[in-house]
Every structure is written in structure tokens, then in C-alpha cells.
Design a protein around this nucleic acid. Structure first.
Lengths: 234, 234
DNA sequence: ACAAAAGTGTTCGTCTTACACCCATGC
DNA sequence: GCATGGGTGTAAGACGAACACTTTTGT
């Protein structure tokens, strides 16, 4: 995860040489619902700069492995999160001098992606690496955050909340089968606010976002059985 | 503008080596109003791949000159457009294998920026390099466009139109002093649609986006004099 | 007088919000 | 019976679109 040289001198040739290129990285803003709140997955940095601060997980771009940027993000997400996120969305690119792995003058360029992890997939929460890896509520970030990752996390949270508020459900984030009540609770937890039930249901109906699964019902609770829905295909 | 080697072998050292890094570039989507329509500034490629196709102007990132990504965009914009755009906004990052300057396997990563050039600054339109450089209406793009630049141009146009439709005026794009009629015409030209005068003015008033310059009037036209406004400071 | 654009008021329909109400179940 | 959440309807308000109208200049 570190390297040995920040630049290299191009060989002589008959064409114009180009200068050294920055270290290219991909950072993943993985979000999920933990304890009813929108959380983000952070790791504790073991190296300068910002040693000991919390940071987004990420990895170095591999020109031999990655066919394109999205593929690189997919690979890094799989490596660092243990699962292949069903949705990956590019958020921004940041880059500057003085961001080398050990904090020297070296240039680094990071392309930041967002991943929304379904709550049911949360298997790798704090275990043996509990001190190095943590889910953190996006509305209560720790004070020590590396680089400008704090702003990036807030950007990602705004994005996700805008998606949910507009009922644009990122692929794979919603369970296959669900009741409208469960869907509404999920949205409320992401947004951190209460929603009006009739309005919520009317929007879903008018825009034909969900469709009932014929005959399916959720029974067993001390109240009226709920119809089971799925996301519309069209 | 070309280089001599797509990768280099890291020197031996006591730390983990990293692989070769992609060629990092910045591309500029410069937009302006030309003949009452939203246009984008394109150059004709002189090299493979896509030789002869139209492409966004851009340049290679220089770790020695550029302190960060935004600075790099500023430098490249100044070099390729001849002026320093008052507003620069990052749009997206794209990158893949097979995008080297001569179309080999080489990786290239481009960070795309948008610049909105005030119409009055348009000095460098087709002159001696007429065949290599062109303003093109975003709604009538040529068929031969390099890479995915076509999608990027459309993304930039959507962004700009969303900004204008929501009356978020990018810095420097609007003249210092203007009449409400002129501002509305400018918006209509960017959007490519007609706007309702009373609604347009009400929004500006309610949101306190503009303020009249005391006493200033636009006289000399064969109609009622128009009050002169400026953008609100707060 | 006339054309042309500045400038203002009002109506209409749509979309969102808030709230009231009934329904069906397990305990 | 009663608490609980499922499910639906309706009225009030916010917002923008469409249009009618008056005002003031140069020619």
C-alpha cells in the first residue's frame, strides 16, 4: 500500500516527453443502515499523513487489472469491503500535491465512488479489526477525519438522501420483496426524518414505482396483514 | 503533447512497489452563447485514435505546475482557451485502457471540467485555425466525436441548463449590469425555450437574486426605459 | 398614432402537506 | 376489547404556468 518513488524520469526518445504522473487511487464511500441510521464505513489510517485519523477505504488504480475507472472501483470495493456492491456511483475526483502515502510532496489523485450496501449484507462489522474499521453515523462524524474526506462523506450523504427523497432507489439497496411500511421505514431511516404515509404511498402509486405481488401477504404481526410489493420492472 | 512511454518499471527498494500509473489529463467543456444558442468549444483531433474527429480541448496534468486538480483545470483552460474562465466546475472523471495519445493499450484518466464563458469574451472564434477549432451548438453536435465526449458534452449542457433554470447564475457568466429583459433573453437562449416574463421576474424578486442600481436606466430604445440591475451580493 | 418592450396583477391547475378516518389482526 | 400498524380519502396550502393589462419611450 506504499510505493518507492513519486516520480520517474522519462527515457530519451524522439517524441516530447511527459512529466511524472500522480498516484491514482479510488476511494469508496460505503453507506448502509446501522441501528436505524445512515452510516458510512471508515478505516483508521496507520500511516502519515493523518495517522490515526479516520478515512474512506480505498486502493491504488491498477492499469494491469482495471479496464476502466468503474471496474477499478468495483475491484477496490470488493477487496476492501469483502462484497461486490450492487450499486456504485462516481461522486467526484480530488487531487493535490502533498498527499503521498507518507505525506511528502507527492501528488495523488483520488476518484471517489459511493456504494449503498443493503442492511442485510452487513456481515463484516467490527470483529477482530474492531479498532481499525468502523461504521459511523454520517450525522455524527468523528472530529479526526483525514484529508477532505469529511466533505466527501457529507456530499455522499446528501446524494443518497436526495436519491431516496426523490424515490430513486439505487439498484440492490431495496429488498426484493417488502411491505410498504417497511419501505417507508427504510426511507425514513436514511433521511433521518418522518414521512407522511398517505403521501408516500400516493407517490409510489402515481409513478408506478412498485407493484404488488399477487396474493402475497405479511402475516403474524398483531395488526392487519400487509401486502407484499416489489420494485416495478419498467 | 505526446509521450514516449506508457509505463515504467519501479525501481527496486525496501517498500512495496506500485504499478505504473495512467496518463492523467484534464478536459474542458467550455460553453458560451453564440448566435443566440448554447455552444461548446471543440477541437479537431490530429492524432489517432479518433483522428479527424471533434473532441474537447484538454491537457496533461503537470505535477510540477499544478498544486491541485482545480488549479490544473485553470491552467489547462487558460492555455487552450486563451482566457481564464471565471467559473470552473468539475463534472466527472472518465478513464480506461486503450486511450493513449496514439491509441495503444495505454491507460488514460481524464477529469472533465465545465467552463461558462461570457458571450462578450468570445474573441478567439475561428480565425487562422478555423479548421481545427470550432464553436458548435450543443443541440447539433457533429456525428464524429472522439471517445465518449458526446455524452460529456450533453451532461455539461444539462448541468448548465439546470443551473440557469433554477436561476443559479455561475460566477462571471452574467454581465455586471443588465436589464431584466436582457437577463431573460440570456436565460432563454441557454435553455432554448421561451420563458414567461411575469413568472421570471417574480422569482427573481421573491428570492432576492437581483437588486436595482439606484437611478440607472437603459434609454435610447423605442420603448419604455428599463431599470438596470445587478446580482445581489448576499 | 404606433410599435415595441417594460412592468404588474390575477386566475388556474398541479403538486405537496397535514390530518382524519376505517380495517384487520394477535393478544 | 384494545393496541398496533395497514390502508384510503379529503381539505388546505404552496408553487408555477398562462394570460390580460397598463406604462413609457422613439419614430
Amino acid at each position: 500500500m506504499s510505493h518507492n518513488e513519486e516520480s520517474w524520469t522519462p527515457k530519451k526518445s524522439n517524441t516530447m516527453p511527459i512529466g511524472p504522473m500522480p498516484l491514482c487511487r479510488v476511494e469508496i464511500t460505503a453507506q448502509s443502515l446501522v441501528n436505524g441510521r445512515l452510516n458510512v464505513f471508515l478505516i483508521r489510517r496507520q500511516e502519515a499523513p493523518y495517522k490515526g485519523s479516520w478515512a474512506l477505504p480505498g486502493g491504488v488504480l491498477r492499469v494491469d487489472l482495471d479496464a476502466n475507472l468503474d471496474a477499478a472501483a468495483k475491484r477496490v470495493a470488493a477487496e476492501r469491503l469483502g462484497i461486490a456492491p450492487p450499486n456504485l456511483r462516481q461522486l467526484a475526483a480530488v487531487g493535490a500535491r502533498g498527499r503521498g502515502p507518507r505525506g511528502e510532496e507527492a501528488w495523488a489523485l483520488s476518484v471517489v465512488y459511493r456504494a449503498l450496501i443493503p442492511a442485510s449484507t452487513l456481515s463484516f462489522t467490527p470483529d477482530k479489526r474492531a479498532a481499525e474499521v468502523r461504521w459511523v453515523a454520517v450525522d455524527e462524524l468523528p472530529t479526526k477525519i483525514a484529508f477532505e474526506h469529511s466533505a466527501l462523506i457529507e456530499l455522499a450523504a446528501r446524494q443518497t438522501r436526495a436519491d431516496i427523497a426523490s424515490l430513486t432507489f439505487p439498484a440492490g439497496f431495496i429488498p426484493e420483496r417488502f411491505t410498504l411500511g417497511a419501505l417507508q421505514r427504510l426511507c425514513e431511516e436514511v433521511l433521518g426524518t418522518r414521512l407522511d404515509k398517505p403521501s408516500f404511498r400516493r407517490k409510489l402509486r402515481d409513478r408506478e414505482l412498485v407493484e404488488p405481488i399477487a396474493g402475497a401477504q405479511q402475516r403474524g404481526d398483531p395488526h392487519r396483514p400487509a401486502a407484499i410489493y416489489r420494485l416495478s420492472s419498467d
